[in-house]
Design a protein around this nucleic acid. Sequence first.
DNA 1: GTGGTCTAGACCACA
DNA 2: GTGGTCTAGACCACG
Lengths: 135, 135, 135, 135
Amino acid sequence: MNSTNTETTLRFSLDTANGVPVYRQIIQQIEYALLSGRVQAGDKLPTIRSLAVGLKVNPNTIAKAYGELEIRGILHTQVGSGTYISGKKPIGEEDALERKIQEVLGRFIEEMRALGVAKKELVDLIEAYDERRMQ
Amino acid sequence: MNSTNTETTLRFSLDTANGVPVYRQIIQQIEYALLSGRVQAGDKLPTIRSLAVGLKVNPNTIAKAYGELEIRGILHTQVGSGTYISGKKPIGEEDALERKIQEVLGRFIEEMRALGVAKKELVDLIEAYDERRMQ
Amino acid sequence: MNSTNTETTLRFSLDTANGVPVYRQIIQQIEYALLSGRVQAGDKLPTIRSLAVGLKVNPNTIAKAYGELEIRGILHTQVGSGTYISGKKPIGEEDALERKIQEVLGRFIEEMRALGVAKKELVDLIEAYDERRMQ
Amino acid sequence: MNSTNTETTLRFSLDTANGVPVYRQIIQQIEYALLSGRVQAGDKLPTIRSLAVGLKVNPNTIAKAYGELEIRGILHTQVGSGTYISGKKPIGEEDALERKIQEVLGRFIEEMRALGVAKKELVDLIEAYDERRMQ
DNA sequence: GTGGTCTAGACCACA
DNA sequence: GTGGTCTAGACCACG
């Protein structure tokens, strides 16, 4: 069913300094890519070994991430062939993306409030935030 | 919903379901309160025991949070009297708050981009966000 | 909520010669114990290390079994304390036990038929099967 | 539902969803047919290619099954003619069928006991079981 | 003490 | 080549 579309839209990036386990970061990035439609059912994921090399982590770490997603029905594997996106979207239904966005948004607003930044100020901050990203 | 408001304007709220260790949530909330000026040098913190009771966590957990903040020079203990905020602001100096805000902001923008939300759309999302989230 | 009932009703036994992965055997035995009511929500499971010693397998293997059950919502862990049965029964609802029994039964009858044993003969076989088990 | 009935009474059916490797299912079905007398020494087996087409699996998979049975002396190949059942019954001798039946029976009884079903109840279950299972 | 993460490496099963 | 299982062992986080 799949034309041989390989993994063009998945781009993994790890932050090994923020305490979030590597395998969780991988899970999240696959989930988000699926939620936002950048990958679809049937798409092939990078092989465990190639991704391990690319991210410079142990293959077992990738396997752990893929394994959890498989248990949750998001991926399936064909041994000898590779790992593929299953039909099922992560959480529930059609509004999963919207709910995820609201969740991330809510956490952000709360955290900013804890830092003493009111919601009104956020708009300015965001507009002021451009490519002066250092690192 | 837990809150303990003793001598300061500190207000703790824990989320025991999101995977972030309790002691780290406490540290962060004290840090943020200091960064944002809600507490100041000399302010008294709740006792370990009272805070543990109020938040329904193990006193060891509070002790660990206070202990780490003491190591970092943010708190100090006066035996027989209690625990107090030291003068030193977290991490660096005056720009610590600004750096923290930029860090949170950067993570938020990146995460939203991973979900397929462009920076331009964020403003609308934030303005549309009113406190209709409870959970 | 739990009186300190430890794991009296769980008894693990492994068959390392039948090709079924060890971690799957453990998963199945926990599932079956839960389905049949021998363990209940809140019950404490053996610690990873103690079970690993008892079954003479690597702790990682036990952790893998517990981990899969945790992802599926059947267990939950309290680091520093141990692993506990959650409320949720394995598959679906109240008839999960009945469905599992029918599934096992169906596989058995089919397999026997493949060996040339008719359903009628099975009753005699079962009645003739008693404690001449060697091993 | 797949079936291939060439020169013998062999009838293969695969379940690609139960985790048992395809090549092993094929081996088992040939073994069982031999044990139960549905095929005999000298019977011709389907060619690798025809069986692969019929079962819609990779020819390598059939070749692997045949190869393993050949190593065990159950099959032999006559180049240019085909693959045939050898005289030798699987494993041991005349009691091989009986031992296999007892093995399957023992596993079944144990598994049912793990599900809380006593041996006495099994008779009723089997009698109540009619072919109301599909899938 | 508890479980969690990660690495390194061996061996197997499958296509 | 693919993924799966298991071991051994290190280090961390938590109570």
